[in-house]
């Protein structure tokens, strides 16, 4: 695990000469998923640092205070109360991923019956599953989302915290799906596969997407040229035991309440 992690710590400079963003069109990631799962909720990264490296992305906040959506250069917080707030770049984060979103292709989706269905369709349509992608879907859709409650020290592992998550049935709502797709080899560093957050057009509702459905929309895809991974400079990170397979924990924090793993 550690060898694998160290290997991915290196910036993955993948050839991308013909893409919209060129060779600098990388995913900028603050910390690793394993640390978040282990309960490192220290605000090691500033919102200003995130915005210097991307205008589009997702993550969470210091003390796990809700879901982060970065859209068009603005950081939005969806706390457990569901009351969306625009956040200052002075805000802190323990884990986030951003990119400067520049679509390389658009994939029309005639109908997505569920989030799993959308993910399957995208997997079939993307040119390769061995790269990082940022994905943006705009339009009217049915969304179920969640957020997590702010935590006090001692911080508990994320899989325990999500048992207390707030689930929002947003119904039919106009808005934007902010998504990332990470390749399977990124396990431990990020969520392998898709990770979606949502923000309504009126910026009043959102969260980590548990399910969604829509018809007649298109997915704008930014094929990213690599990963720029930064590790926390302070906080509990260095003392964490990040060895071992956490795939069961990832499934637990990503799934709908009551869903089978």
């Amino acid at each position: 695990m550690r060898k694998g992690l160290l290997a991915v710590l290196l910036t993955l400079a993948l050839a991308a000469t013909s893409w919209a963003g060129g060779r600098d069109d990388r995913l900028y990631q603050a910390s690793v998923l394993s640390a978040l799962l282990a309960g490192d909720y220290a605000g090691s990264f500033g919102g200003d640092e995130l915005l210097a490296h991307g205008d589009f992305g997702l993550g969470t906040f210091e003390n796990l205070d809700g879901e982060m959506v970065v859209l068009d250069g603005t950081i939005w917080q969806v706390p457990a109360s569901g009351q969306v707030r625009r956040m200052s770049p002075a805000v802190k984060s323990p884990f986030a991923c951003v990119a400067f979103f520049q679509p390389d292709l658009r994939l029309p989706v005639a109908s997505a019956a569920s989030l799993d269905d959308l993910d399957r369709q995208l997997d079939a349509a993307l040119p390769t599953l061995n790269r990082f992608y940022a994905l943006r879907v705009e339009g009217r859709m049915r969304v179920t989302a969640r957020s997590v409650p702010r935590q006090d020290k001692p911080w508990r592992p994320l899989a325990q915290v999500v048992k207390e998550q707030s689930v929002f049935d947003l119904g039919e709502v106009e808005g934007t799906l902010v998504g990332l797709r990470c390749p399977a080899f990124a396990a431990g560093v990020n969520v392998p596969g898709y990770h979606w957050h949502f923000l309504s057009k009126d910026r009043s509702r959102g969260g980590h997407v548990l399910d969604c459905s829509f018809s007649g929309l298109a997915v704008a895809v930014d094929r990213l040229s690599g990963l720029d991974l930064r590790l926390p400079r302070s906080g509990p990170f260095d003392g964490l035991d990040l060895a071992g397979d956490r795939s069961d924990q990832v499934k637990a924090v990503e799934k709908k309440p009551g869903a089978a793993q």
Binding site: D24, A52, D55, G73, Q102
Partner: peptide, 24 residues
């Protein structure tokens, strides 16, 4: 122009959060 487009795109995404809509 490709480099200029990329830099313009980045500028566009940053101004609003800092209260500088002219940058955007």
């Amino acid at each position: 122009l490709d480099a200029a487009r990329l830099l313009g795109h980045r500028m566009k995404g940053t101004g609003a959060s800092y209260g500088l809509p002219e940058i955007t």
